[in-house]
Amino acid sequence: MRIRTATDEDWPHIYPFYAAIMAEGKTYAFPEGQSLEEARPWWMEQPPGQTVVATVDDTIVGSAKMGANRPGRGAHAATASFLVDPAHQGRGIGRALGLHVVGWARDAGFRGIQFNAVVEANAPAVHLWRSLGFDLIGTVPEAFDHPEHGLVGLHVMYHQL
């Protein structure tokens, strides 16, 4: 697996699994039913942020976007979001992307990484982030409308660098 900076030409290859994950409605509070062009600014970060892709044999199997969590006085904390193509889940792609983001944030001089909205019903993600050193700071109750579990909490998670 290789992780590299995403290009504009990568977006049409990311979009199908982006759209599938948003349509599933279990992990992101992003708009559903977006066209290719409507969805682009939701995922393709502009500098100083960055979007990366994970590839296996030149096939894009996952992506992450990262940057400052807040502007100004909050810019010392990073944030990130992750997508793994459902056809390739369970192969360590999320972990590799997570490790890449932690290294990127550390190298960029961030003091920590804050995840603002990890769906509490997303047990694999919560387990992954904890295994990479993230602490559960708190949970906003009933902040996410899960299609199977109804109203569930959103975790705020933090990793000090």
Rank of each mutant, 00 (worst) to 15 (best):
T7Q: 11
Q114M: 06
A20S: 08
W129T: 06
D135I: 01
F17R: 01
T51L: 00
D58N: 14
L132F: 02
R4E: 11
G112C: 05
L132I: 05
K65N: 12
A117G: 09
E32M: 12
D57Q: 10
S81P: 02
F144V: 04
K26A: 07
P12T: 04
G112R: 11
A19W: 13
G94Y: 15
V118T: 03
R111S: 12
R130D: 11
A19V: 09
A64S: 15
W104I: 06
I21W: 13
W104E: 13
A23W: 00
H13G: 01
L36Q: 05
H127A: 15
L99N: 08
I14E: 14
T27I: 03
I21S: 14
V52L: 12
F82S: 01
T5W: 08
R91A: 15
E45A: 10
R106I: 11
F110P: 06
S81F: 10
G133D: 06
Q34K: 12
V84K: 10
T5P: 05
P47N: 05
V126E: 05
V126N: 03
G74Y: 01
D8C: 07
A75R: 10
S81C: 06
G33W: 04
G92E: 14
N122Y: 09
M66H: 08
N69K: 07
E37N: 06
D107H: 11
G109M: 10
A64G: 02
Q89N: 01
M44V: 04
R111N: 15
R106L: 11
F110H: 12
S63D: 07
I14C: 15
P71R: 08
D135G: 14
P86V: 15
M22T: 10
L132T: 01
H13E: 10
S81G: 15
D85T: 07
T5Y: 10
Y15V: 07
A54D: 04
L99M: 11
L136D: 09
M44L: 12
A68W: 00
W11F: 05
I14Y: 01
P31V: 03
A121M: 09
